[in-house]
């Protein structure tokens, strides 16, 4: 009986193929075209995010914002969702019970904190974090840690002069003023600035 043994070329090609398949299943190798698929997934996730936004589905917005960040490295959707959930949904105009408002504020904050290492522009999310902690969470918990954490976030934002996208010489000067103060006056200084920013000058 005639038996066809595989040629050296066939063995090499099949071996290479198996190596590539194993590498792809383990995540070591990304098959050519995977970036196109990721690009499409990112696009589709953003479409679903906009749908969730128009439906007012807050948990879906946060989840899709996180997915969009993972897929594309862009943090705009997550930052918008976190602001909407943490600051907007916990505000007085949302007419929620205090426990409910606190839940949404903390949920939004948690999403931001978990993703801070991945966010391309972390300095802008510090602002959302600080205002939510100081204006939303602290009045409901009266936990000093929440307050200090919020002040710390603003201090980091000032130290970066607002970051790369929202850089401002005013913020840099504010940080230099902050540094001239003794330790005991630093937190009240930031708090006072936060309150001044929260209440418009003409009111």
């Amino acid at each position: 009986m005639k038996r066809n043994l595989p040629s050296a070329g066939q063995i090499l090609a099949i071996g290479l193929l198996l190596l590539g398949l194993a590498g792809a299943s383990l995540g070591t190798v990304q098959p050519l075209g995977a970036r196109s698929w990721q690009g499409f997934q990112g696009w589709w996730t953003l479409r679903r995010f906009h749908q969730a936004e128009s439906d007012g589905d807050l948990p879906a917005m946060l989840e899709l914002g996180k997915q969009h960040l993972q897929l594309t490295g862009q943090g705009d959707a997550l930052e918008f969702a976190a602001y909407h959930v943490a600051y907007g949904a916990s505000g007085p105009s949302s007419n929620r019970l205090p426990a409910d408002a606190l839940y949404w504020a903390q949920t939004g904050l948690q999403a931001l904190e978990e993703s801070q290492d991945l966010l391309p522009d972390p300095w802008s999310s510090l602002q959302t974090q600080a205002y939510t902690l100081v204006e939303r969470v602290f009045p409901l918990t009266y936990d000093r840690d929440d307050l200090y954490q919020g002040l710390r976030a603003i201090e980091d934002r000032l130290a970066a002069g607002g970051g790369i996208v929202q850089s401002s010489s005013g913020l840099s000067q504010l940080y230099r003023d902050f540094l001239t103060l003794p330790d005991s006056e630093r937190n009240p200084f930031i708090l006072k600035r936060l309150e001044r920013a929260l209440i418009p000058e003409d009111e």
Binding site: S7, Q10, L16, L17
Partner: peptide
């Protein structure tokens, strides 16, 4: 390699990846 064109393409695709 004297192998089928489709298998050649898959092996080349792996090298490219």
């Amino acid at each position: 390699g004297r192998i089928r064109g489709s298998l050649s393409a898959m092996a080349t695709f792996t090298i490219a990846s």
